[in-house]
Nucleic acid binder design. Sequence first.
DNA 1: TTGAAAGCGTTACCAA
DNA 2: TTGGTAACGCTTTCAA
Lengths: 310, 310
Amino acid sequence: MTVSRVINNKAPIKPETRQRVMQVIRDLDFEPNHIAQSLTGSRSYSIGVIVVDIANPFFAEITAGIETVAWQHNYNVILCNTQEDPMRERQVMRMLEAKQVDGVIVCSTRLPDGDLPTLLQMFPASLLFNRDIAAEDAIVFMLADEAGMVSLVKHLVAGGRRRLGMIAGGSRSRSAQRRLGSFRKIVPDKDPPVERIETAHIRNGFEAAQRLITRRPDLEALVCHNDLAAIGAIQACNTLGKRIPDDIAIVGCDDIPLANLIAPKLTTLRVDRRALGELMVRNLFSHIAGERADRRHVIRHQLVVRESAP
Amino acid sequence: MTVSRVINNKAPIKPETRQRVMQVIRDLDFEPNHIAQSLTGSRSYSIGVIVVDIANPFFAEITAGIETVAWQHNYNVILCNTQEDPMRERQVMRMLEAKQVDGVIVCSTRLPDGDLPTLLQMFPASLLFNRDIAAEDAIVFMLADEAGMVSLVKHLVAGGRRRLGMIAGGSRSRSAQRRLGSFRKIVPDKDPPVERIETAHIRNGFEAAQRLITRRPDLEALVCHNDLAAIGAIQACNTLGKRIPDDIAIVGCDDIPLANLIAPKLTTLRVDRRALGELMVRNLFSHIAGERADRRHVIRHQLVVRESAP
DNA sequence: TTGAAAGCGTTACCAA
DNA sequence: TTGGTAACGCTTTCAA
């Protein structure tokens, strides 16, 4: 008991006793058993991080940020990769409950709206990234997709470009819906040409751009769902003999490393993933600590102007 | 007790009792408490994965492989990012011990040889990736850097190239030492030109290649420590007016996504990171299960021939 | 200021 | 085939 008090820095302890205990702890190389600590019901000092794909650099960097801060708070991270499988996500949550985690961060959940509240309330605290839902106590972090699109289009229009087209993302992706919706709303043209691609990869971006430009050779700019699609679009322009940015401007989203390496360098939107991860855990922890902070957070992209749309 | 037996599928249980218990478990939505299970001393059903940088796609993909198989075995992964800090690595291990993990996988440890055995023996099972050490019970997975270099050089020589140079990695990196050593040993030239770069990034590769080519304009091929350096070298060749692969061939290592996107596409060495991760946990698990499998494993790269050195 | 007793949810062991 | 009891290593509560 006395030892427990020393370890947890709890009064009252006579300074001399404390010293003596500390010495023995050192001598014995004693490390308190977290498992037993958790069992007594207080804290497990671990949080669950659920991501759809840890091999995706976007989530890997967020996770890196999360882990850094978690470690500073003496917490560890139980990493769960769902591989986009809602079933798996559900199982993972049950497992995290059994492991008594003090909180979860769920990135881009694939679970239906209806299931989320019930599942999340198994945890003392929960945070959803990239999924807006009116869950009772969940913290929500959203990317400001609409605002990002606004800054992109404003930048293009300010550069004197009027006829814009878009290569939009998959119809089931919510962020794709938000970006496309916002694009349609603010673009000068009332009925802008749009091509949807189910997966936003280079190949699809290439083909979509070819179709778009062939259909509307007078396009002055192409807004792409993400950088990969934009890189495909750049290749399509090369193939079709369109000069970038003189004939047509190209913008993407994400600022992947390649965006700054390709020629021409890509104008795009960036969000500091690592900082985002750090911010999210901090929020989760203050929630765990019972502080009632804001529950809804909107993270804005930063416009990165490069050669493809100066 | 009876419930425990049902959960763990242990005899003897009357089938009818089993059914009755199962039903109640379903009705109550009962999930056994892993924490308590761990405390009784059996298994914690979690393993620690220690990586120097989870934001590095190389480790992120290995981790993805590990997580997949761990999940199949009902295990979870406690992810620890050491950020190349040996101190942190030591602390992380103590923490994992306190968490009673059943095993650890340590990727590219930065700890000195002397400390490793003591630290690793805290765990029921341990696996080292990319660090060869004669630790008692640790499993060791090594990349066959030497063999990879051999296949690279053989390929270049078979293409009729004799005068090879190398952009080698940092002097403190063991894999850089192995690759450079192997290069020197098998290259036709007895004293080949070599430039070392401390961090193998594009910028450094660019500069090193410029120096190398300026010093030895007759070079027929450049072997680079990794793909990033190789991409820098490609840019340097463009700057200096050297045509690839006609004037000079370039090869890298790693097969990062960019290697297949850049022009010319890069000839390089690949290792299937995800499969490697899966292989490693499988090994760890059979070790945990007490099966005495091989303890030392060498993973060979695969030569990927592309345009930069056909 | 210290420590004895009870309890956290499970499993090992043994008795019924 | 079943279930009572002790034990895992800690913290909470209460008494000394």
